[in-house]
Simulated scan of single mutants.
Amino acid sequence: MSAPNTPSLADGISDAVGFVGGALAGFWLGQWLGMDIFAPGYGTPALLGIALVGLGGGLGLHAAKRWQASRRSKPAKD
């Protein structure tokens, strides 16, 4: 068992899943709204699409951290 404040492999994996899942959600939302991040040049739609990917990744990571905290606060089952 690890120390209470030591991050575990499960924490790292959930962080990665939350970040990638959120970034993909932001990417697909941008695609749905017509904001192609791979468009040539750096036009406004491309920059807004890139911002959505970053925002989605950050929100996904935040959700993963909240999920980890909620799991730690529950009493252990015997």
Rank of each mutant, 00 (worst) to 15 (best):
residue 3 A to V: 00
residue 3 A to K: 04
residue 4 P to R: 09
residue 4 P to T: 09
residue 5 N to W: 12
residue 5 N to L: 12
residue 6 T to F: 00
residue 8 S to I: 07
residue 10 A to W: 02
residue 11 D to P: 04
residue 13 I to D: 10
residue 14 S to C: 04
residue 14 S to A: 13
residue 18 G to M: 04
residue 19 F to D: 01
residue 19 F to G: 09
residue 20 V to N: 06
residue 20 V to M: 09
residue 20 V to W: 09
residue 20 V to L: 14
residue 24 L to W: 08
residue 25 A to W: 03
residue 25 A to L: 10
residue 26 G to K: 03
residue 29 L to F: 01
residue 29 L to E: 03
residue 30 G to A: 08
residue 30 G to K: 01
residue 31 Q to P: 05
residue 31 Q to S: 15
residue 32 W to C: 08
residue 34 G to E: 15
residue 36 D to Y: 12
residue 36 D to C: 09
residue 37 I to E: 11
residue 37 I to Y: 13
residue 37 I to C: 11
residue 39 A to L: 14
residue 39 A to S: 15
residue 41 G to K: 13
residue 41 G to W: 12
residue 42 Y to L: 15
residue 42 Y to M: 15
residue 43 G to D: 13
residue 43 G to M: 09
residue 48 L to E: 05
residue 50 I to C: 04
residue 52 L to Y: 03
residue 52 L to F: 06
residue 52 L to W: 04
residue 54 G to A: 14
residue 55 L to F: 12
residue 57 G to M: 10
residue 57 G to F: 08
residue 57 G to N: 08
residue 58 G to Y: 07
residue 60 G to F: 00
residue 60 G to Y: 01
residue 63 A to Y: 07
residue 63 A to L: 11
residue 64 A to T: 05
residue 64 A to C: 06
residue 64 A to R: 05
residue 65 K to S: 08
residue 65 K to T: 07
residue 66 R to I: 07
residue 67 W to C: 04
residue 68 Q to M: 10
residue 69 A to C: 00
residue 70 S to A: 14
residue 70 S to Y: 05
residue 71 R to H: 06
residue 71 R to A: 13
residue 72 R to N: 12
residue 73 S to H: 06
residue 73 S to Y: 01
residue 74 K to C: 00
residue 77 K to L: 01
residue 78 D to Y: 00
residue 78 D to V: 00
